[in-house]
């Protein structure tokens, strides 16, 4: 799966979780950039990603991600394994 394909699918998940049908994601985006992104929506987003991409993160993975770009990389790595 290419990074662009991941981002495309990830955008849909973000729009659903953050209840914003026009949300556009970027690599540098962090929780500070999105209205309503707190620990609860974060965990909802992680669970949505796990379901959508058929992967599982560890707590360590979740803590290590600092922005959307790192999330995309983590998804690509998990999918490759």
């Amino acid at each position: 799966m290419t990074a662009d394909a991941i981002k495309h699918q990830l955008t849909d998940i973000f729009r659903d979780v953050f209840n914003d049908p026009t949300l556009e994601i970027t690599d540098e985006m962090t929780a500070d950039d999105v209205d309503g992104w707190d620990s609860l929506t974060h965990i909802n987003m992680i669970l949505g990603v796990e379901q959508g991409f058929g992967i599982r993160f560890s707590i360590k993975d979740v803590r290590a991600m600092r922005n959307v770009g790192e999330l995309v990389q983590a998804i690509a790595k998990k999918r490759a394994n």
């Binding site: 953050f18 209840n19 914003d20 049908p21 026009t22 949300l23 209205d35 309503g36 609860l40």
Partner: peptide, 16 residues
């Protein structure tokens, strides 16, 4: 509150 924001409240965002 969580259920309301997720399932009932109107969509938000800059372009809403």
């Amino acid at each position: 509150t969580m259920l309301y924001l997720r399932y009932i409240s109107p969509p938000r965002g800059k372009k809403a």
